[in-house]
Each structure stands twice: as structure tokens, then as C-alpha cells.
Nucleic acid binder design. Structure first.
Lengths: 124, 124
DNA sequence: TGAACTGTACTATTTCAATTAGTACAGTTA
DNA sequence: TAACTGTACTAATTGAAATAGTACAGTTCA
């Protein structure tokens, strides 16, 4: 399970969302896996249940999980979900490219930084 | 001159900082060029002078401009400044790479996105 | 010298999003 | 029925960002 950084300035809500996205991308969580209940996770993180619930709502809106009233929340297993995450990752990365370009970074420098820093696989 | 987006959620202060960094990276502003006075820019943007002053203080702390009491604020022309901007751009881009990796983007996909989206020059 | 600029410093107030707090309702399971 | 689950809603709190106002110090130029 991921951890929260209360000093980072990043909203708790977003950190929880990103935490589950990451766990799914890494394959730690797979389709059908049940998430902790809203109340259980809130208790574990010492955070308000409403904050967790908001995170779950965002995850569901993005098709990453699905929630069933009375049963719980589960990792969705359809391709759509994985694609949605990838597409949003691409959009965010493109924004980062534009920002770096604005600051004077060349394409070659960016590519070198990727080769030096990425722990991702060569192919997907 | 750049524009502000009051709806973006990005602090005004940061937008002003990034605006000048961008103008310098693009070569629109060069070493020795004088910036608008704190009060003039605040008036132009319909923003509080304190907000602009905070931006200038950040720019000066990063070596991008220098301020002289009673005279004004100027773009610094030493190499240190350009390097400082590049270094911070690199740090931000590395953070973006790690985030994208977390979300499941492969190195090849990232490199392709750069080739498709960057308007930066091949070399620096 | 003095008026009109410039940057800088400081405190108080306002504003707004994020979070917290509390309660309530509905569906599932045993 | 009891105990769990998600969901919905309003109100209060918190903290960062921005605003407001004032004051002081250095520069420029008539």
C-alpha cells in the first residue's frame, strides 16, 4: 500500500487517487480486487472518510474502479480503464513537455533525461 | 508580454514567475532588460503589488533577475541564471517522467510523445 | 532640495479550496 | 436484525494565496 505525504501540498484526495492508479499500473492490484472500505482506509490514513470517498468517486468516474452499494469498491478489469489511465498519463506528459520546452530544454536533453531516469520497460 | 489565467488555479505569483522565465528562454527578454516596476505590472494585471513583488523576489532568489533599490528590476545576464533555469526545468521534467512511469507509460512512448509534441530545437 | 519614481518590509484582512465533522439513507451479507 | 458496505448532504475548520494599507530606503532629475 502507498503512503501519504501531508507536507507535500498535494491534496490528500489526489494522493489517494494516484496511489491506486500506480498500484494498478504496477500490477499489484488487478481487476476484481477489492479496495479497503471508505471507512477502513480513512481510519488507516487518519483521514476523514469523506476525503477517501471523494477519491473513490474520482477513480470510479475515470473507470479505474467500480463501486457497489453495500458490497464495496473493486478494481475494474476492462481494457477501457487501463486505456483511460494511459491517455491521461499522456496528456499530463505532453503538458510537461511543453513546460520544459518553454524553459529552454531541447528535445535531445529531454530524451536523455528519460533514458537516464525512467525505470519503465522499453516497450508496452 | 504574457497573460494571466485567473481561473486556472495556478497561483498568480507562479504564473508571473513562469511568464518571465519563458520570455527569457524565448529570447524576448535579454540580460540587462528592465522589467516593469512592481506597481506598474500590478496595475496592468489588476493585481495587488505585493503579489508582483513576491514574484520578483522569487525570480531574484533564482538568479533570473536582479533588483536595485530605487532603480528597478532587470534581467540578469550571467550564465548562472540560464543554468539555474535549465536545472530547475530538468528537475521538473524528471518528476514528470517518474509520474508518467508510475501511470504505466513506457520510455518509447514518452520519447515518441516528445518527438511529436516538442517545438524545441534538436540541440542546445 | 524636493518631487516622483524605484524596491522592500511588515501586519492585518479577505477569500477560497481542501479537509474535517457529523448525520442520514440505501443496499448487502450472514 | 446487526453489522457491514457505498453515497449524499450541510456546516465548520483550516491554511495558503491574494489583497489592502502603510511605511521606509535608495535613485533620478528638474
Amino acid at each position: 500500500m502507498f503512503q501519504l505525504d501531508f507536507k507535500s501540498g498535494v491534496p490528500i484526495c489526489d494522493q489517494i487517487v494516484n496511489g491506486f492508479i500506480k498500484l494498478k499500473a504496477l500490477g499489484v492490484l488487478k481487476g476484481g480486487d477489492q479496495l479497503p472500505s471508505v471507512r477502513a482506509l480513512a481510519s488507516k490514513f487518519s483521514v476523514n472518510p469523506n476525503t477517501v470517498q471523494k477519491s473513490y468517486a474520482i477513480l470510479e468516474a475515470n473507470g479505474i474502479i467500480y463501486s457497489v452499494k453495500g458490497k464495496g469498491s473493486f478494481i475494474s478489469d476492462d481494457e477501457t480503464s487501463a486505456n483511460a489511465v494511459l491517455e491521461s498519463a499522456k496528456r499530463e506528459f505532453i503538458a510537461a513537455i511543453k513546460h520544459a520546452t518553454d524553459l529552454g530544454l531541447s528535445t535531445n536533453e529531454m530524451i536523455n533525461l528519460i533514458k537516464q531516469n525512467s525505470t519503465a520497460k522499453e516497450d508496452t
